[in-house]
C-alpha cells in the first residue's frame, strides 16, 4: 500500500517542467522509479531526481492529461508513494552520461554519485535544458571532477546538434560505461555507437506502466518487463530487444510503431 508523503515545495524548472519536493526518507538507488499517487487524480511512475537525507523530489513535464492535472496542485498536498521499484544503475566512474530532454531528471542522482565522467545533455533549445542554472548541480559536477557538454537542436545554447554526435567524438577505449536516458530513438542510437566502440551501455527505458511490480504485463519490451527486469537494461539485454526504438505498447496492449506511441503519450 502507498506510504504517505507531503509536497513540501514546488520549483519551476523550465517553461513546461516543475520539481516537487517531498519531506521524508526514501531508500532509493539511482535509476529506480517510484509509483506516485495523487489521490483522486491518478498514479504514475517517476524517477527520483532530487535526493537528500530527509527530502526527495521528482521533476514533471506538464504535457499529458495526468501531468497537466498535477501541475496545478499546491504545496501541502498529501500524496501516496509505492516503491522504489526496479533495478537501478550500476555505477562506474570514467563514464559518459547521455541524456535528452526530461531524461536529465532520472540521471540527476547518478550524476551526484559518479566521478571523472562527462555528461552530454541535449534539448530542443536553450530554455528546455533542465537544471542548467541549478547551483547544486553545478557545484557537484565540479566537486566530482565531472564535465558537462550542452547540445541544442536549434543551436541556441552549447553545441548545435545531437548528443549522439558528441558521443561519437568523445567515446574511446577508456570509457567504462555509457549511461543513457531520454527519447528512445536517441537511446537506440547511443546503444549502436556503444556497440561499434565495444563500450558497455546502461539504458533506462520507459513504457506505459500499470502495476510497477511485474504482474500486469503492460510495460513489455519483447519478453522483458521494464518495471521488474529494468528499467535499466545492460548491453547484453538490449541486444535481444528487437522492439527497442521500433515498437511499444499502448495502454490497451496494442503494439504500435514507437512514433505512434509517443504521439499517443503526449495527448
Amino acid at each position: 500500500m502507498h506510504k504517505e508523503y507531503t509536497v513540501k515545495e514546488i520549483i519551476r524548472e523550465t517553461s513546461n517542467t516543475q520539481t516537487y519536493l517531498f519531506t521524508g526518507k526514501i531508500d532509493y538507488k539511482p535509476g529506480q522509479f517510484i509509483m506516485l499517487w495523487f489521490p483522486n487524480i491518478g498514479e504514475k511512475p517517476f524517477a527520483v531526481s532530487h535526493l537528500k537525507d530527509n527530502e526527495f523530489g521528482i521533476t514533471i513535464e506538464c504535457k499529458g492529461k495526468f501531468t497537466k492535472g498535477i501541475c496545478n496542485i499546491k504545496k501541502g498536498t498529501k500524496v501516496g508513494i509505492r516503491g522504489p521499484y526496479g533495478n537501478g544503475f550500476k555505477i562506474e566512474n570514467n563514464s559518459i552520461i547521455v541524456v535528452g530532454g526530461l531524461g536529465m531528471a532520472p540521471a540527476l542522482p547518478l550524476i551526484q554519485k559518479i566521478k571523472d565522467s562527462t555528461i552530454i545533455q541535449g534539448a530542443r533549445s536553450k530554455e528546455f535544458l533542465l537544471y542548467k542554472e541549478d547551483k547544486n548541480l553545478i557545484d557537484t559536477i565540479a566537486k566530482n571532477k565531472n564535465k558537462i557538454i550542452y547540445c541544442t537542436d536549434d543551436g541556441s545554447f552549447g553545441i548545435n546538434g545531437f548528443t549522439t554526435n558528441v558521443l561519437k567524438d568523445i567515446i574511446n577505449n577508456k570509457t567504462k560505461i555509457v549511461y543513457t536516458c531520454g527519447p528512445e530513438i536517441m537511446i537506440k542510437n547511443v546503444f549502436d555507437i556503444c556497440e561499434k566502440n565495444k563500450v558497455g551501455c546502461q539504458a533506462s527505458l520507459e513504457r506505459f506502466m500499470k502495476c510497477g511490480i511485474g504482474v500486469c504485463g503492460s510495460c513489455a519490451v519483447n519478453d522483458q518487463l521494464v518495471c521488474k527486469d529494468g528499467p535499466v537494461f545492460s548491453s547484453k539485454q538490449i541486444r535481444k530487444l528487437t522492439e527497442l526504438g521500433k515498437f511499444a505498447r499502448l495502454k490497451s496492449g496494442k503494439k504500435v510503431p514507437i512514433k505512434e506511441y509517443y504521439g499517443y503519450r503526449s495527448k
Binding site: 502507498h2 509509483m35 499517487w37 500499470k210 511490480i213 490497451s252
Partner: peptide
Amino acid sequence: EREGNPNPTVVE
C-alpha cells in the same frame, strides 16, 4: 480495443 481503468490499477 480498450485501455482499461486509469492508475492506480494494482496495489500491494
